[in-house]
Design a protein around this nucleic acid. Structure first.
Length: 476
RNA sequence: UCCUCAGUAGCUCAGCUGGUUAGAGCACAUGACUGUUAAUCAUGGGGUCCCUGGUUCGAGCCCAGGCUGAGGAGCCA
């Protein structure tokens, strides 16, 4: 007989049928009731063992974490906490779990502690819920694009390009680091390296996605991305997953529509497919909030927040309007901003938070940033001083999406390269697409973990990726 | 990288103005109970007070340096 997953037993119970369930003990209460979880759902199934039917020595091995296989009959529960339970007839211990060594307990443990036990934290309700939700979101990403005729493009992870300037890069080399070959100028001689030139881990698949979009029409990337920045925040990782759609013939308005539809689709998908896990995380957040001061608590419960985003249009404003709102705010007049506001500045975190969390209290799309503070490939507007860039800001997270209409005009792009000190021979292949059948196109980048944070309500990005890579942390 | 805060039992934490043998809850062991819901009750074992150095008659507590973690900032997704 094959095992039945707990999710199925709980959702479609067949009273009286014999089943085999396998999983990990969460609690063993009253020497009689096992709360068993197999990961298929946040919920446990209650297994009832009558002491006289089993070896006492076996029952003594049932600790939190013990892996067991149970044969038994599905029955209506006599207790109050559950509808069905399994009356055990056979019990096999598959894996013992010494409670004196196993660090995970059913009582509260801090996320910081569990982060140091990354190999075991999957066994907690919280991380079980988070990683099931992460899966659903990833699936929703592919489904969204597939339904709209996009092609999934695998952009390279190792790249010889260092032109994007999106951040510090991790070097990839097979040179002997103890005896690095040098050229006549005393520089590292990468001609002897694996690729015959210096290579790095990618910081973005965008440029490659543009190449493909200018032939396939609509593409998206969804893969790991690496930044060697020494960032120590709850919103940054050295290795994270990024989604980058790129669409030929789209302008900045189409781009905004796509991004808004995309976010709403993914959040609606988890509302429709993972409500149990969301409910657990919502309750967890509510518990957590009770320990916080009033002004740090969530204004809305998690599920309501997600529904609100799904059901309401995002606010769309220009950078210039954003600056006006900030300068006319009481907050500004009372000099509560640490950084001053004037046209031309890069918006600081405090400014973005004010706009999103205080002024609009909903997701906001800001467009038309000054050209000087944005990347070289963004399309110059007719005013000659702003670019067709867009950032989507959400409450609690800040920037979740950054995108733009791309500069498709060869001469303008060459001029921008010169302004940004990007040697043309480094990205000659990118420039060639503007020479051979160029067309307007647009795209954006979304940090997948930021979306997982928003959907789960988790407040530290290290808790929404299985094995977070951050400065000084690559143990697992 | 900068600023702030923290580090005490396996976990979550308390520890007064520097003063005798460092505490609680959970976990664990033993026993009781046996339809429990993070079961409950009783008893018990369990400590490199982050590390190094200093001040002091005396340091978990004060000082200096370091390590680690968290929050915020910058960079960004």
């Amino acid at each position: 007989m094959k095992r039945t997953e707990i999710k199925q037993i709980l959702s479609q119970p067949q009273i009286g049928s014999e089943v085999i369930v396998k999983g990990w003990v969460r609690t063993f209460r009253n020497d009689q009731f096992i709360a068993l979880n197999d990961g298929s759902t946040i919920h446990n199934v209650q297994v009832v063992v009558n002491a006289q039917d089993f070896e006492e020595n076996d029952l003594k091995r049932l600790y939190t974490g013990t892996c067991i296989s149970v044969t038994g009959k599905v029955a209506e529960s006599l207790g109050k906490g559950q509808n069905v339970e399994i009356i055990a007839t056979q019990l096999e211990i598959l894996g013992d779990c010494d409670p004196n060594e196993f660090p995970i307990q059913m009582k509260k443990t801090s996320l910081e502690f569990l982060r140091e036990k990354a190999h075991l934290r999957f066994r907690t309700n919280t991380f079980g819920a988070v990683f099931r939700l992460r899966h659903h979101l990833a699936y929703a990403v592919h489904q969204f694009f597939n339904e709209r005729g996009f092609f999934y493009l695998h952009s390279p992870i190792v790249t010889g390009s260092d032109a994007e300037g999106a951040g510090e890069m991790f070097k990839v080399t097979t040179l002997d680091l103890n005896e690095v070959p040098k050229d006549e100028n005393g520089q590292v001689d990468h001609s002897q390296d694996f690729f015959g030139k210096s290579a790095n881990l990618t910081v973005s698949g965008q440029l490659e996605a543009e190449l493909a979009a200018l032939a396939l029409g609509k593409v998206y990337t969804f893969g790991p991305t690496f930044r060697a920045e020494n960032s120590n925040t709850s919103r940054h990782l050295a290795e994270f997953w990024m989604i980058e759609p790129e669409v030929a013939f789209n302008d900045i308005i189409d781009n905004m529509d796509l991004a808004e539809d995309f976010l709403k689709y993914c959040l609606k998908y988890v509302l429709d497919h993972a409500i149990d896990d969301l409910t657990f995380l919502q309750d967890r957040e509510a518990q957590e909030d009770k320990t916080k001061p009033m002004d740090e608590r969530q204004a809305m419960p998690l599920i309501d927040r997600l529904k609100f985003v799904v059901e309401n249009p995002f606010e769309r404003i220009t950078y210039t309007e954003a600056i006006d709102i900030l300068m006319n705010s009481n907050h500004y007049k009372k000099k509560k901003f640490k950084y001053d506001v004037s046209w031309g500045i890069d918006l600081q975190s405090e400014h973005e938070r004010y706009l999103v969390e205080k002024h609009f209290q909903k997701p906001v799309i800001i467009t038309g940033y000054p050209a000087a503070i944005k990347a070289f490939y963004m399309r110059l507007n007719e005013d000659g001083k702003t670019v067709a860039a867009m950032d989507i800001l959400v409450p609690g997270i800040g920037e979740i999406i950054g995108g733009s209409q791309r500069e498709e005009r060869y001469e303008v792009l060459k001029e921008k390269c010169a302004q940004f000190n990007i040697p043309e021979d480094h990205i000659w292949w990118y420039l060639e697409t503007r020479k051979f059948g160029t067309c307007p196109h647009a795209g954006f980048g979304l940090g997948f973990e930021r979306m997982v944070m928003y959907a789960t309500g988790m407040t530290n990005i290290r808790d929404v990726i299985p094995f977070p890579r951050t400065p000084l942390n690559a143990e697992f």
